[in-house]
Write a protein that binds this DNA or RNA. Structure first.
Lengths: 335, 335
DNA sequence: TTGTAGGCGTTATCAC
DNA sequence: GTGATAACGCCTACAA
């Protein structure tokens, strides 16, 4: 029912080849005939078939974003950045949401064949060596956001430093009993962000002659609910912490709830530091480690598009700047 | 570099046609040869080319979701629902984020050709009659979520009723001076949700011998910041309202900030009602009109997939249940 | 049950 | 500059 390149050719009295040249605005076509062809295209409301193009050129004009639970606030923020740069290109955005190992493997299996996407953006998810090899073999460009691999370019926040910054902030306020609420790494996704942040905290504490004691280290699955439980346990300790660093703002919300449950006043009784600086953080006055999520998406997408346009694919690592945003959930420890 | 159906055929000692039959598990193939072919497929790590399939079958195995600013919390929630049902199907999820009229028109123009997506999910965006005609002509299935068109099946919240419910809640608490903070419809997207809710409020107020006065009707672009400004103006009125119904929870956040700015206590001095019941609403104790966003996405996707599987495409309308969730931002008006 | 052949709508490589 | 012609990799009658 839809018209093809041949219909156009016939009505314009030229060959399909010429129409193709017009479409792809090749310089080698007479202005007269070009005008004529364009007219017919307009009359017929012709659009070249994307499928046929894919098969013929071997390019899909789409990039795949694969990420565990793309509806997490931090990922959404990154997606905003990604979408923002893709919209001004010819690339479509195909989202592969992976919640399980099977889904993750399945997606990467499909995607490494190269006929579904020209490039991949892996967000918060690291590929295995084998997968990287297949990507290279298939000539598929790939950039990591919030994940790392020595052979791939990646955009990361400096998590160790982030952890240090959070701890340093509390230390500078006079805290000595500092705890961490973190996310258990979903091992299959290979992103140790939460672990690295705790390591950073540890380093900073040690530099001050302190330590991150096991009883002050609470780790569980991501999300507000679990963080609330973890924090409640912390508050019930015989010698509870006076400051808590969380692996995300979402977790910090849970910790705030736990404080409320326990009848603790923030920051008078306990200081709480988040991570990410989501919009909600500014609304709530949450002290947090700001991570440029939006920018990470932008940069990831930009670098990927650059590679797709023939740019170098040699691994590069972009480390994003972090900073503590001091608001009203942190203050001096109780006397 | 990647192996094709012919490679498989050759090594298995059969024809390409047979391999194709195996892939698409046609019943008409000898168990023995099938086994042999499958073995070769495994050995070669063969995967059929999606591009070739698309061209040959005319189906893309992908569904397009087009929506204005897909990173809005309410849309994200709907996407969760959509993604949830698509993941168990063979359909890919292609996101078309449209921020401007041009982008909207461009996306719909591409998508109505039928070689980019088998089906469309339009979220918070209504197509024109012309676009609907082209969809039908191209045989492209389409379901609307949070939008309406008489010829398309759609999933909507009952906005008029939602407005009534919000107003009724405040009325029942004794409020008489009730204002609305709404979103100016981005006309090009054809979704009058905010307007409908205000109409509902109006109806309910009238039923109580009251009215929704123009000075109590503040409308502006969506988002927290603008809502804050609008509410500030409301609070500066000589006779300010004692209750405010917002078109979204996000707007309600802005209104809460404005109240804080004005030194008003909530709900003692002013009651605030949101709309949507985002997760943040429960965290903040925001009274709101709960709208099943996640379910709307699920249902939209389910109905679409159903149509794609040969189900009926005659327009159907699914109206989602709304309910007021009473929390701590609403109470009796000041005496 | 299996092989053959034509077609899906483009692009690209040739000659002319 | 333009027109044939051969891919691209798969599917699907139709024949055998």
């Amino acid at each position: 029912l839809a018209s093809t390149i041949h219909d156009v050719a016939r009505l314009a009295g030229v060959s399909a080849g010429t129409v193709s040249r017009v479409i792809n605005n090749s310089p080698r076509v007479d202005p007269q005939t070009r005008a004529r062809v364009l007219q017919v295209i307009e009359d017929l409301d012709f659009r070249p078939s994307a499928s046929a193009r894919r098969l013929s050129t071997g390019r899909t004009h789409s990039i795949g974003v694969v990420t565990p639970t793309f509806t997490r606030p931090s990922v959404v923020e990154r997606l905003r950045g990604i979408s923002g740069v893709l919209v001004s290109t010819e690339y479509e955005l195909v989202v592969y949401n992976v919640e399980t190992i099977e889904q993750r493997d399945h997606a990467l299996d499909l995607l490494t064949r190269g006929d579904r996407a020209d490039g991949l953006l892996l967000v918060g998810l690291g590929p295995t060596d084998g997968e990287v090899a297949r990507l290279e073999q298939g000539g598929i460009a790939c950039v990591l956001v919030d994940a790392e691999h020595r052979r791939l370019t990646s955009i990361v926040g400096d998590d160790v430093t982030g952890g240090r910054l959070a701890a340093r902030h509390l230390l500078s306020l006079g805290h000595r009993k500092i705890a961490a609420v973190g996310e258990s790494p979903r091992e299959t996704f290979n992103t140790p962000a939460s672990v690295l942040r705790q390591r950073g905290m540890e380093l900073e504490l040690r530099a001050h002659g302190l330590d991150l004691y096991p009883q002050y280290t609470a780790v569980g699955e991501q999300g507000r609910g679990r963080a609330r439980e973890l924090a409640s346990e912390l508050f019930e300790l015989p010698d509870p912490p006076t400051g808590i660093c969380c692996a995300s703002d979402v977790q910090a919300l849970g910790v705030l709830e736990a404080a409320r449950d326990a009848g603790l006043s923030v920051p008078r009784d306990v200081s709480i530091v988040g991570y990410d600086d989501l919009e909600i953080a500014s609304y709530l006055g949450l002290t947090t480690v700001r991570q440029p999520l939006f920018e990470s998406g932008m940069q990831g997408a930009s670098l990927l598009v650059e590679q797709l346009n023939g740019g170098s694919r040699s691994p590069r690592q972009e480390v994003l700047k972090l900073e503590v945003v001091e608001r009203s959930t942190s203050g001096p420890p109780p006397a």
